[in-house]
Amino acid sequence: MDFSFLQDDLTYLLWGTFPEGPPGGALLTLLLSAGSGLASALLGLAFGVLLVMLRGPALAALTTALGFLRAIPVLMLIFWTYFLLPILFGVDVPGVLSVMAALALVGGAYLGHGVAAGIRGVGAGQWQAGLALGFTRWGALRHLVLPQALRMMLPSFINQWVTLIKDSSLAYIVGVPELSFLATQVNARVMVHPAEIFLFIGAIYFVFCGGLDLLVYLLNRRPRRA
């Protein structure tokens, strides 16, 4: 095991050429996953609410759309948003944003079903109480059901975040300079220590994801104590 490449490349792997250049490496991985994490939470919330509130063909259309998003490998989806949509619609979205959009869509599609289940899980009693108090259906959702559902769902939101951090590594395929991409660059230069390089960045991902994992564990434990 020879980790001497770290002498030259540690900061490059951690934050790229920042602050002279744009953020890269582990810093960009964090930014990417934070951005798409936030967007996927919002999307998931919207999808979940719509899954509960919509009826008929609109519901069928949404379910089908979410089904598509969950059926396509993330790698393919990144290709679509990065290369194909710009060609189709002539919009030029910066690379980082298009990867963020792809990850947010997938994350949102997964969270949507969870949110819907959470809302349904709060129970008919709460809905009826809300309606009896004079709330509209949307009012009851907004003020009574959603706050309870979201509290229960916090762990699954964080879990989704762990998935997003890991999936952001797929951005390497379109050359977005996040951690995995920079690792392949460093590997290409060092040439003879692939095991060490991939172990090292694996460790960085582990710190990020493991930290969030620990948070979920603590969150899950707290209600039991109370």
Binding site: V162, S180, T184, P194, A195, I197, Y205, C209, D213
Partner: peptide
């Protein structure tokens, strides 16, 4: 579960043989 599959695959294919 806390490391990306891509990095794991790189490790198995490019790293382990070394």
């Amino acid at each position: 579960r806390n490391t990306p599959l891509l990095v794991q695959l790189f490790f198995w294919y490019f790293g382990v043989p070394a």
